[in-house]
Design a protein around this nucleic acid. Structure first.
Ligand SMILES: [Mn+2]
Ligand SMILES: [Mn+2]
Ligand SMILES: [Zn+2]
Ligand SMILES: [Zn+2]
Lengths: 152, 152
DNA sequence: CTTGTTATTGCCATTATGTGCAGTTACTAT
DNA sequence: ATAGTAACTGCACATAATGGCAATAACAAG
């Protein structure tokens, strides 16, 4: 595919190498299309080549993130999910603290806030990495009683 | 202190118990004043009572977070830092991807975004938990070349 | 004060992720 | 094609954080 070729070229331009492991992770991300955990990705890569280690998957996802090809979201449970950008394009991530679902949102909505923070604090917001905690439509907290603490 | 008493009362009102461990963690957080890792907190608690386990510290910090007394920030390195609210009051957290520093910012700046997301997506933003990635004044990325990837 | 209930703790196992290192392999230049 | 360089990998291990569980202790009631 064309988009992959462009990525491979950029890789080499910057001194990185194109390895079968990286090709496989990228291919698997394409195949999945949706969010996936490192382990889910590793499972599919493992099916293609059983010697690939999960640490390589982590390192590859990290690299893809640096290249802005993949976005990573910390889900409510202690696991991260990774998503291939480029098809949906960059977007905000609304992460529901109730059900753990992740919703994409128009990135431009965060622009005014970014401008404020640059002007008032000299802080350059990385809007691509912004993920916003809260509650989705199904999980609205009991109105009025905002700070209810659940017994364990 | 008065603010601690108020918290202890709220604890019991909701069926939680006031234990020496919880008192110690709260006292240590006061003493530290700044951000601290779970391990730093545990060290100081351990000095007061050497049998307290770090898992208890984690659970206590979790509880304090539920009570909105403590705010937790995922720092760049794989560690979280905890901060006692109430003195500074709630605020946004600007987390620098360069140096790992955390800056507090006026919470109201995020209000317009929250309104947009509620109206457009039915998503109720939890502004207290919002932390914003980017680069502080000292760590401004090379302008123009946004997506520079470092060799490892 | 004594007793009962059950939230909480300490301990230990487990999970998700990161790292050091020596052997391997992709790329470059001859 | 061959050889040199250094990026990359697999493996083993380290680390931060979480979860199960039986023993403990905080609180309420008598
Ligand atoms: Mn997304
Ligand atoms: Mn703060
Ligand atoms: Zn939800
Ligand atoms: Zn910085």
């Amino acid at each position: 595919m064309a988009c992959e070729e462009a990525f491979f070229k950029k890789l080499r331009e910057r001194g990185f190498r194109l390895t079968p492991q990286r090709e496989m992770v990228l291919s698997v991300l394409h195949q999945i299309g949706d969010f996936a955990t490192a382990e889910q990705i590793h499972d599919k890569v493992h099916a293609l080549s059983s010697s690939v280690d999960i640490s390589t998957v982590y390192r590859t996802l990290d690299l893809f993130e640096d290249f802005r090809m993949v976005s990573c979201v910390e889900r409510g449970d202690g696991q991260r999910v990774y998503e291939l950008l480029g098809m949906h394009g960059p977007h905000l991530h609304l992460v529901c603290s109730g059900c753990g679902s992740v919703m994409g949102a128009e990135l431009d909505l965060a622009r005014p806030l970014a401008v404020c923070l640059r002007e008032d604090y000299g802080f350059e917001v990385d809007v691509n990495r912004l993920h916003i905690p809260g509650f989705c439509h199904e999980c609205q907290p009991v109105s009025g009683e905002a700070a209810t603490v659940e017994k364990r």
